[in-house]
Nucleic acid binder design. Structure first.
Lengths: 219, 219
DNA sequence: CGCTCCGCTTGACAGTGTCAAGCTAGCCGG
DNA sequence: CCGGCTAGCTTGACACTGTCAAGCGGAGCG
């Protein structure tokens, strides 16, 4: 951990930013450390100096991504109205998850690519755990109110997370647009899956689907 | 286009197989065309000759993956007992999806990486559409029996697919084991999410969760 | 025979990641 | 003021990469 007296050298941040831009422009597979260095205007080995090697850079970028994701979800949570149901609260975080992926495609692209990352990096692990903690805590809290009590905490968390993550992944790849043309943007997709997930697939016709509140928030 | 009289030259298949092995051993980011050629024992440009460039090879590999996935799901479907519920039928395909990802990690790793693929390749598009058609058809058929009738066909298909795909993705990356230690293998994860998804998160306590049949098929 | 493909090789080139060494400015104890 | 230490960055070199261009042998066919 860098001591607070060393507020991370500015070049390091500049390199991370340049890396993000490069990934955005050329895709994660096509970025080179040298191109990043060129973009910043430093020597070809400057990234190597700060991050050790390629994986070191991507690891730092992923950690930055998880921290950004956490802030995103915390902000979304702060804006939840007080009378929201537990299901709505969890769904809001899910939408925040997707919005993050849309707004920071480069970060998201790196965060879930283990072969690009140094799996043992404690900073990355901490950032990841902290970010997912926000999501998992909300799910646990919702379950404590009775929501989803038929399922184990694990099953609940796993399913919510998988659904949102899967939707994000498929949407990002363009697969969704191929199979469901005009399905809409990230938010629309997120809302659709969270609603369907909440109701459940096997729900009987006798009971009307739990009417989503008159939309307080607009898409 | 190779006429059916040219049943794909053997070297081409050998290269694809070698590529799969290389990806399995070193990860998709670390494979080089030259290493693949070396493994087969041909010149460094042989892959280039058959596939044009790097993306061409990965595109062919992904297409092979989708065809294998389709066979996998068809085989799973064939083994569904006649008295299975629609939900069970869909869940079985989902499990097949995950089992495929477990048995062919290299293929799966390539299939959903657009930056590695030639998005315009008709062969890839056909293989992908055909594979997902199996899954989507089953969902549509299930809905026709009343299952999930509260949701649009799109919402239903999107949610099922996202959940399974997300679970596979997270599981493959090792993220699941980190957050839910001892959660089990691919099949266990797949069954857990499909069951939870089917019941729905908001299900009320009054109605017991639809008891899964006494397990007829073993893990 | 001569021609023309097809499958594959050979050679070359710019660009890459990484190792090793060098440079420079700032600091610190004396 | 000095000498040495360190952090931050550069320079140089190397093996390796993907891809372009040309070459080469054999099969099919007129």
């Amino acid at each position: 951990m860098p001591a607070p007296t060393t507020p991370t050298p500015p070049l390091r941040d500049a390199l991370l930013l340049a890396a993000e831009e490069e990934v955005d422009e050329h895709g994660v597979g096509a970025v080179s450390l040298r191109a990043i260095a060129r973009r910043v205007g430093v020597s070809h080995q400057a990234p190597g100096h700060h991050f050790g090697d390629r994986n070191g850079l991507f690891t730092a970028l992923a950690a930055k991504g998880f921290r950004t994701l956490e802030r995103r979800m915390l902000a979304a949570r702060r804006r939840i109205p007080g009378d929201a149901t537990p299901a709505e609260r969890v769904a809001t975080l899910g939408v925040g998850y997707m919005v993050f992926a849309k707004q920071h495609p480069a970060l998201f692209a790196v965060m879930f690519r283990p072969e690009l990352l140094d799996g043992d990096d404690p900073d990355l692990a901490a950032a990841r755990a902290s970010a997912f903690g926000v999501l998992l805590d909300e799910i646990v809290a919702a379950r404590a109110t009775g929501w989803g009590r038929h399922h184990s905490e694990t099953a609940l968390a796993l399913t919510c997370w998988s659904t949102v993550h899967g939707a994000v992944t498929l949407w990002r790849e363009g697969t969704l647009d191929t199979f469901f043309p005009g399905i809409g943007g990230a938010q629309a997709v997120a809302r659709m899956v969270t609603e369907t997930l909440n109701t459940g697939l096997a729900a009987e016709a006798g009971e009307p689907p739990p009417a989503p509140r008159p939309s307080r928030r607009r898409g």
